[in-house]
Simulated scan of single mutants.
Amino acid sequence: MTKTEYLALIEKKRTELIQIVSKNGLDSRITLEFSQELDRLLNQYNSIYYKVQVSRF
């Protein structure tokens, strides 16, 4: 997956999470699941692309 594709997927998941929260609240099970999915995507992105930037310095 390219950097652009990761960022688009992260933004899509973030938007979905906001919608889920507005419908179900912060403490619902589905909110937690979407939040964890977003966390996983962010961690994957950071492990791939952030390390590349750090190693350049």
Rank of each mutant, 00 (worst) to 15 (best):
I18M: 02
A8D: 14
E5V: 02
R29N: 08
I20Q: 12
L38T: 14
R14V: 03
L38V: 12
K12M: 11
Y6C: 12
T2C: 15
E33Y: 09
E37F: 02
Y6G: 02
S22M: 15
V21G: 00
L9H: 08
E16S: 00
L9S: 06
G25A: 11
E5W: 04
S35D: 11
T15V: 08
L26R: 02
G25M: 07
Q19K: 12
K13Q: 13
S22C: 14
G25Q: 03
T2K: 14
L38D: 05
K12H: 07
R29D: 02
F34C: 04
L38W: 07
N24P: 05
K13P: 04
G25R: 01
D39W: 08
Q36P: 04
I18A: 13
K3L: 15
L38F: 11
I20Y: 09
Q19L: 06
Y6M: 13
I30W: 09
S28G: 12
I10S: 04
N24D: 10
T4D: 13
Q19E: 05
L38M: 13
E11P: 01
S35G: 05
E5D: 13
L9I: 01
K23C: 04
V21P: 04
R14K: 15
L32N: 06
T4F: 01
E37R: 03
E5K: 00
D39L: 15
V21K: 13
L32S: 13
K12E: 03
T4A: 15
F34A: 06
R29S: 12
L7Y: 08
R14N: 10
F34V: 07
S35L: 13
K12L: 12
I10W: 02
E11M: 12
N24M: 04
E37S: 03
L32W: 06
R14I: 04
I18V: 15
E5R: 03
K13F: 01
S22N: 15
L26G: 09
D39A: 14
T2I: 01
E5M: 01
Q36V: 12
E11T: 08
K23P: 04
L7S: 11
F34L: 02
T2R: 11
T31R: 03
D27V: 08
T2F: 09
I18T: 15
A8C: 00
T2S: 15
L38G: 09
A8H: 05
S22Y: 06
D27Q: 05
N24F: 06
S22F: 02
Q36Y: 01
E37W: 07
D27A: 10
E11K: 09
L9D: 00
I18P: 05
D39N: 09
